[in-house]
Design a protein around this nucleic acid. Structure first.
Lengths: 132, 132
DNA sequence: AAATATTACTTGAAAAATGCAAGTGTTTTT
DNA sequence: AAAAACACTTGCATTTTTCAAGTAATATTT
């Protein structure tokens, strides 16, 4: 598994060195806004991530501490991926991207209500994350 | 030159399809926070972007309208790259990344004062952008 | 209990993006 | 006129991502 390689001590580049690949933020989007928790669910995104990359990214996000990987008690085939506080804290980045994308990318769609609800529920997400 | 390829109509993925590569946001950081305007200046970043990639990214950002490329009236060798409103509007994404990075990436540094000043000057940046 | 389906990967080969080192052409400076 | 500076470009190596299949373990169906 790849290691964290920092290009500088700039916090922007530091953030990008962690989630600046083509998929990490979309996986976090699914977890934060969609409550998705399994490899299966992520593999069904409209954006069609390849399964090997998905597995790699989930490992990566767990390694760098934005999510946690746990065995599913109800289904031995499954793992459950849960957000950590570090992962939930990526919400503002996603929100800023939603704003920019809604303004500038044609036909962009994102349910307003979902944003509202998620922002409101942020503390619940954090609680859940902290209780791990 | 590459074309915009949208993976979905999600605004987050739409944003990433435009600035989700390894360098675009760092170039915008330099323009927004550092007032940098030339190929030369960008090539001197501590993050060491290769000159061919830099040229490609500047073309790209101009093509998708986040910056504008103009000849430097004082030096025929140079081009000046200026932010557009679309580019300035990426500020909130950068700010969110600064917050996350300051909290979670070790040794992260970013001058508080520069953030303050830039946020305050945002409307000036926008004015300058609009007057193009 | 045996066969089938589901889930989460892994593998290997192709394509794309990035990085590196060394040019090239134009303009400016000396 | 020569040297330096600037903005690239070129060709090749390396890394990352994609694509298509395959595998192993567990769960479900018959």
């Amino acid at each position: 598994m790849k290691n964290v390689k920092r290009r500088s001590d700039c916090p922007i580049s530091g953030t990008l060195d962690i989630v600046g690949d083509r998929w990490s933020l979309l996986i976090l989007r699914e977890m934060i806004f969609g409550g998705k928790t399994s490899h299966k669910e992520f593999s069904e995104l409209t954006e069609k991530i390849a399964t090997n990359i998905l597995a790699e990214r989930l490992e990566w996000l767990a390694k760098v501490g934005l999510i946690q990987k746990l065995p599913d008690p109800n289904d031995g085939r499954r793992s459950i991926y849960r957000l950590t506080e570090k992962g939930v804290d990526m919400l503002p980045v996603l929100l800023a991207m939603i704003d920019w994308g809604m303004k500038y990318t044609p036909d962009a769609q994102f349910p307003r209500e979902l944003v509202k609800q998620t922002v409101k529920n942020r503390s619940k997400l954090l609680e859940a994350a902290r209780s791990l």
